[in-house]
């Protein structure tokens, strides 16, 4: 079997770069934050897929912690967009 998981992971990384273009272009701050949200989801997908490829169940724990921490960051930036932070 050819290494389909690695190829898929590389394509996911290219998708992250595409989201980076959206962050750069994004007309409003909310668009940029939405692109960052998509990047977080893509990083979780990459970690879950690579845990099969490298036979490391620990990668899934890293994905859980990454999802929780990025959630806190997203909520904080949402407050910033709204103008609640002094």
């Amino acid at each position: 079997m050819i290494d389909i998981f690695m190829i898929a992971a590389i394509i996911f990384v290219l998708l992250i770069f595409a989201c980076g273009v959206r962050m750069w272009l994004g007309p409003t701050n909310a668009d940029r934050m939405l692109a960052l949200d998509v990047i977080n989801a893509l990083v979780v997908i990459i970690m879950i897929i690579l845990s099969i490829r490298f036979d490391q169940p620990g990668f899934i724990d890293v994905a859980i912690v990454y999802a929780l921490l990025s959630f806190v960051g997203t909520l904080y930036v949402a407050k910033l967009i709204r103008g609640d932070l002094e």
Binding site: F71, T74, L75
Partner: peptide, 16 residues
């Protein structure tokens, strides 16, 4: 977390 963060971004965008 995906549900909550989507709602938070949409709501704060509308309020701003």
């Amino acid at each position: 977390t995906a549900t909550t963060s989507t709602h938070a971004i949409a709501r704060s965008a509308y309020r701003s």
